[in-house]
Amino acid sequence: MREYTEKKETCGTICLKYLLFIFNFFFWLAGGAVMAVGAWTLAKKSDYISLLSSSTYSATAYILVVAGVVVMVTGILGCCATFKERRNLLRVYFILLLCIFLLEIIAGILAYIYYQQLSTELKENLKNTMTQKYRKEGEERVTSAVDKLQQEFKCCGSNNYTDWADSIWIRSPEASGRKVPDSCCKTITDLCGRRDHPSNIYKENGCITKLENFIQEHLKIIGIVGISIACVQIFGMIFTCCLYRSLKQEPY
């Protein structure tokens, strides 16, 4: 009876080892995906971060990058801990899983909270950012972001083209008589912003709604990725606990 029990426990341990190994393989791939989403957000979608008064959007992306790197390292550690059957390594692995779980939950929560606050923030700050910082010395990132925003989304100003009447730069001699920046023009040529006719500029299209929709879509992606991977990790932590309990206590 005793031999049967020991054999049964051994088989259970083997099953747990392979389950945890399979989990780690997919977990490692998921870590690459999480890191890629965070890096993609920062590298390709960061142009408009300078137009936001809050750093929450970029913070969620940085959290995903860090979590992704740690996930990939943890996946390798998990494989080593599983096949070497070292309880101390399993403890470290479990702690890392828990830390990553918390990081991804935080990223998901931040994305959700900022998703709710984004509309209010843009309404309160976008016009001021565009009119006060455009073409201002030291604010080259804002200038570049505004020009790209207006061209990419075919819009002009925060609410509409009349917002530019309050612009410090438009009122200055440097604007050379422009009524709006040249990036408001449907076809950009030098000084095309002098003519604000609907045939020339995106006269009725404000940028605020389009920027809001753009960022909200990416916040959804960040939130879904963070929460989804965190939920999957619960299984990894359960497998780790079960394997830890099934192994004999190491001598010290």
Rank of each mutant, 00 (worst) to 15 (best):
R2Q: 09
T5M: 03
E9R: 11
T13C: 11
C15V: 07
K17P: 02
L19V: 11
F25P: 03
G32V: 02
A33R: 00
M35W: 04
A39C: 04
A43H: 03
S46H: 07
S46P: 03
I49C: 02
L51F: 08
S58F: 04
A59N: 12
A59D: 14
Y62T: 07
Y62K: 11
Y62G: 01
I63M: 05
V66Q: 03
A67H: 02
G68E: 07
G68S: 02
M72D: 06
L77C: 08
L77M: 10
G78E: 00
G78A: 06
N88S: 09
R91M: 06
R91K: 12
I95P: 02
L98R: 05
L103N: 04
E104F: 05
E104L: 09
A107F: 00
G108T: 10
L110S: 10
Y112S: 10
Q117V: 02
S119I: 11
L122I: 13
K127Q: 13
N128L: 09
M130C: 08
E137A: 14
G138L: 08
E139V: 13
T143L: 07
T143S: 15
D147L: 10
L149K: 08
Q151M: 13
F153D: 13
K154R: 14
K154Y: 13
C155R: 09
N159A: 14
N160F: 10
Y161E: 15
D163Y: 11
W164S: 10
A165N: 15
I168M: 07
W169C: 12
S172I: 11
A175N: 09
S176C: 13
G177W: 10
D182V: 15
T189M: 07
T189W: 05
C192Q: 09
C192Y: 08
R195F: 05
N200V: 14
N200G: 03
Y202N: 14
E204L: 04
N205H: 04
C207Q: 06
C207K: 03
T209Y: 03
I221M: 04
F239G: 13
C242M: 15
Y244F: 15
R245P: 05
P251G: 10
Y252H: 12
